[in-house]
């Protein structure tokens, strides 16, 4: 797949924002060492909102016909993309309601809006994952791991951001301790990613299946056009193996290992967050770049 930067940025940025939102909300309920004051909470919320919103805006950049984006919410019964859009937008009224309830001191409302927000954020992450995970045409994506990855990586990057946000709180609230949630999630993320890399449950399709000639070797003689087409531009992208391997190590280190170490050994949570996000951007780029669409079989690739 052609790794569209707008989409990569969207998934990582919104993912981190949604994760942060989830942890902020949980933190606002939680015990001492992640407790915070209102200002810090609002700062964190603003950061989360900015990340989410920037991601969403970025996601519209790759639309060829933005003026019709308005219809994008109309097919929630079948389309994960519509679901994601709708649920993402739902965050805003929910958040507004939650804020209003917080401001106006409506204790019977805040838990409801809070849990709704958390559920919605996770649902958005899940939907994003399913946008890709539901595509049978891209075997690498078409596994349960894809949505789980999206949810987990979102929560993970949010969890790394949380201590960074917490570090903004005034000294009287107390120092930020070891962000065990972040470390735990980074570890989980690493395990999942390694599992995904090492043992990827997916179907194989061959050029023989694509054309229905099941005996013998099939190979492309001529593709019927001398230059690129929409299909080759969109699905023809390939990464060199060496480059992919390098990027994979970068992703592993940046997205998981380095942030884990920084969180465990240092208090450089912002740097950890930044590195994590960079790692995830790399991971996401690879996610797209290495995804092979079955239409490549018709263009001569032997298996997908």
């Amino acid at each position: 797949m052609n790794p569209a930067l707008s989409v990569i940025f969207f998934t990582v940025s919104s993912g981190a924002g949604l994760g942060l939102l989830v942890w902020l909300l949980i933190a606002s309920l939680m015990a001492d060492h992640i407790r915070m004051d209102a200002t810090t909470f609002y700062k964190g919320a603003a950061i989360a909102a900015a990340l989410i919103t920037a991601g969403l805006i970025s996601s519209t950049l790759h639309l060829a016909n933005r003026k019709n984006a308005i219809y994008a919410l109309t097919r929630i019964r079948t389309s994960w993309l519509a679901r994601e859009g709708l649920l993402a937008l739902l965050l805003y009224p929910l958040a507004a309601l939650h804020l209003y309830a917080l401001q106006s001191g409506l204790p019977q409302v805040t838990p409801v809006t809070l849990w709704l927000l958390i559920a919605d954020a996770i649902a958005v992450l899940y939907c994003t994952g399913m946008i890709y995970g539901c595509l049978r045409t891209i075997p690498r994506w078409n596994t349960w791991m894809t949505p789980v990855k999206y949810v987990l990586f979102g929560l993970m990057s949010g969890a790394v951001l949380l201590p960074a946000v917490l570090s903004l709180r005034p000294p009287e609230v107390g120092p930020v301790g070891k962000p065990m949630v972040a470390i735990l999630l980074l570890a989980l993320g690493l395990v999942l990613y390694l599992a995904y890399l090492l043992k990827h449950p997916r179907k194989q399709h061959t050029i023989n299946d694509a054309l229905g000639f099941l005996q013998g070797n099939v190979r492309l003689l001529d593709v019927g056009h001398s230059h690129g087409t929409f299909l080759t531009n969109e699905f023809g992208f390939s990464v060199a193996r060496v480059k992919a391997r390098l990027l994979r190590w970068i992703a592993i280190f940046c997205a998981f290992i380095l942030p884990m170490m920084l969180c465990y050994f240092t208090k450089w949570f912002w740097i950890a967050s930044l590195i994590c996000v960079i790692g995830l951007l790399v991971e996401r780029w690879l996610f797209f770049a290495e995804a092979e669409h079955v239409v490549r079989l018709y263009h001569g690739q032997q298996r997908v």
């Binding site: 797949m1 790759h62 639309l63 060829a64 016909n65 933005r66 003026k67 019709n68 984006a69 219809y71 994008a72 389309s79 993309l81 946008i131 595509l135 049978r136 045409t137 891209i138 929409f230 299909l231 969109e234 669409h293 079955v294 239409v295």
Partner: peptide, 12 residues
Amino acid sequence: CMGCNYCAWACP
């Protein structure tokens, strides 16, 4: 249509 290409992704 908003030109999101998603359907093309879904077409084998």
